[in-house]
Simulated assay, not measured.
Amino acid sequence: MSKDAYDSPAQQRILKALVVLAGNEFIGISPTDYAKALRVNPGTATRDLHNLREAGFAEQIQETGRWRLGPKPVQIALAFATHLERAEQRLKEITNRYSREI
């Protein structure tokens, strides 16, 4: 089976949406700018943003109506950083153990 048989334009668009939202955490992005960035119509943009919000990946700024990343991707990034720190510490411990002179 070819790779194309597994491609889903809707899923690919949602993943690209995270990249569009990233970097706009303070001022957010308007639904219109979101739609333009992903080259979709306003209805599709509304549906995307709703689904991203339901999953915790986007949130709407109440004061402005603009959108930004929600807590979920930040939580994932922080969990990764924590696990990376633990792995680095473990590697240092192993390195120290094996580099001691007898």
Score class of each variant (00 low, 15 high):
L69I: 04
Y98T: 13
P9N: 06
E85W: 07
A55T: 15
A22E: 13
E101P: 09
A37F: 04
K36Q: 10
L15E: 11
P42R: 06
V74E: 02
R66F: 13
F57W: 08
G65V: 05
P42K: 06
V40W: 00
G65A: 00
V20S: 00
G56E: 02
S2A: 07
F26D: 11
T32M: 07
A10C: 00
K16Y: 08
N51C: 05
A45C: 01
E59F: 01
A77E: 08
T44R: 08
Q60P: 01
Y6L: 12
Q75F: 00
R47K: 13
T44Q: 09
K3E: 12
A22Q: 13
P73E: 04
E63D: 11
G65W: 00
F26W: 07
I29V: 15
K16F: 09
S2C: 04
T64V: 04
S2N: 08
I14P: 01
E93N: 12
L18W: 00
L15R: 12
I94P: 03
N96T: 09
S8T: 05
E54M: 10
V40R: 03
V20W: 03
R97A: 15
Y34R: 03
L69V: 02
T32R: 13
I61A: 08
A45V: 03
E25S: 07
E63W: 01
V40H: 00
K3N: 11
P31L: 07
T95Q: 15
R100S: 10
A45F: 03
K3G: 08
L38P: 05
Y34L: 05
E93T: 10
R97Q: 15
N24A: 15
G70I: 01
E101G: 11
G43N: 11
Y98Q: 12
Q62H: 11
V19T: 11
A17K: 02
L84E: 15
E59C: 02
A10T: 12
Y34C: 02
Q89H: 10
D48T: 01
A35T: 04
F26N: 08
Q75S: 03
S99M: 08
R100Y: 08
T82S: 11
K36G: 03
P73T: 03
V40G: 00
A87Q: 10
R66S: 06
H83W: 01
M1N: 07
G43P: 04
D7Q: 10
K92C: 05
L52P: 06
A5C: 00
I94C: 00
I29W: 01
G23S: 02
Q75D: 08
G28D: 05
E59S: 04
G65K: 02
E88H: 09
E25T: 05
D7K: 10
I27Y: 08
G65C: 01
E101W: 14
L78R: 14
E93C: 05
L38E: 05
W67P: 07
E88R: 14
P71T: 01
L84H: 11
A35H: 01
W67M: 06
T95H: 14
A81R: 13
M1E: 07
L15F: 08
G70S: 00
E54A: 13
R53S: 14
